[in-house]
Amino acid sequence: MVLRTAGPWPALFSYLRPHITNRDDMLPKYKRILLKLSGESLMGENSFGMDPNVIAGYAQDIKIITDLGVQVAIVIGGGNIYRGMNEQETGIERAQGDYMGMLATVINGMALQSGLEKIGVYTRLQSAIKMEQVAEPYIRRRAIRHLEKGRVVIFGAGTGNPYFTTDTAGSLRAIEIKADVILKGTRVDGIYTADPEKDPDAKKFEQITFSEVISRSLKVMDMTAFTLCQENNLPIIVFDMNKPGNLLRVVTGDNVGTLVK
């Protein structure tokens, strides 16, 4: 298998070389995952839009785990293109703004799809809003069949309804496809007692329960999404997606990020 590196991701190849040569010893802990990415994560160092190097790096990480047999579904936000939450600032009605944000998630999904297919990963982009020229309609049984065939399935357009975040879409789709875990890729390496970027004394949790997250008012996901996971006993792992190789470490059971269960 040939690996390509791009931009700031050369460490990926050096990290993965010993694992690839001994791939029979690499047993994934999770068979089917839902990877939740924020739209902002695609910006890299840019203030808007996408960084091709970030997309290429994410694609490489995802390819590695699919080569190990992990079934991968993905939900991406749209905040790097449009975030329609604040009606007072934009002057756009909330429902209309949310639909605009849904379209942004499809654009991000198409970009990641292109990055994956460029390195030989078969993908399907499914949209909760009908747009047959660019994406399949979301059909649960079809999505599961794609996963069983080893294709990466990217879910776009959120839930298809305004007033619901892509976190909620991620939780809902994970439950529908019977994923083993939600992997929430962020720019921090887990859940802390406070924002580690603002509070140097913030302490990281290695593991935490759903009830403790609620009692401490920690922000992992929006409450609708979080409650869906709690009620369906779906664990969440929050980890740093921007560190090359972290996704592989998570799916093979390394102690990376914070586990919520």
Rank of each mutant, 00 (worst) to 15 (best):
N80Y: 00
E132G: 14
R17Y: 10
N46M: 13
T165P: 04
D254E: 15
G44L: 03
K130P: 06
V153R: 02
D254S: 14
L3D: 13
T186W: 01
A95T: 13
S127C: 09
G190P: 01
M26A: 12
H19Y: 14
I182M: 10
G115R: 00
I119P: 10
L248S: 12
I55V: 15
V75I: 10
E197V: 05
I65K: 02
N255D: 14
T105M: 09
E206L: 14
D24P: 06
Q133P: 11
K243C: 07
N161T: 11
I177K: 10
W9E: 08
T105S: 14
T123H: 08
S41W: 00
M102T: 06
R216N: 08
N242W: 08
I20K: 07
L112S: 04
E176I: 08
Y99H: 13
L247N: 08
R187V: 02
E212A: 13
M221T: 00
G257Y: 05
I175M: 11
G79D: 00
E87V: 12
L248W: 11
R23E: 03
G160R: 05
C229H: 01
T227I: 12
V54C: 11
A128D: 02
S215L: 08
A135Y: 02
F164P: 12
S217T: 07
N246G: 06
D61G: 10
M26Q: 14
L248P: 07
S171D: 03
G91T: 05
N233V: 03
R4T: 14
N161K: 14
M223F: 02
V213T: 09
V2G: 14
N53H: 14
F226L: 01
G170A: 13
S47N: 11
R4K: 14
L42N: 08
K118D: 15
D67I: 00
I119W: 01
A202I: 04
G170D: 02
I236K: 04
V256W: 01
L172A: 09
S114H: 13
L125K: 01
V188S: 07
T166K: 06
V121K: 02
A6N: 10
V134S: 08
R4I: 12
Q133R: 15
I236R: 04
I76L: 14
E132N: 15
A95L: 11
G160D: 09
N242C: 11
Y15R: 13
G160Q: 09
G115H: 00
G160F: 03
G69S: 04
L12Y: 11
G57V: 04
I175W: 02
W9Y: 15
L34E: 01
N22G: 11
I237T: 06
I177A: 06
L112W: 01
T252N: 13
D254I: 08
K261Y: 10
L116G: 08
G57E: 01
R23I: 12
V153L: 05
K184N: 09
R173N: 03
L234R: 05
E132W: 07
V181S: 07
G91Q: 06
G156N: 10
R216A: 08
P244K: 06
A174Y: 00
E206A: 13
V152R: 05
Y58E: 13
I182D: 02
D61L: 01
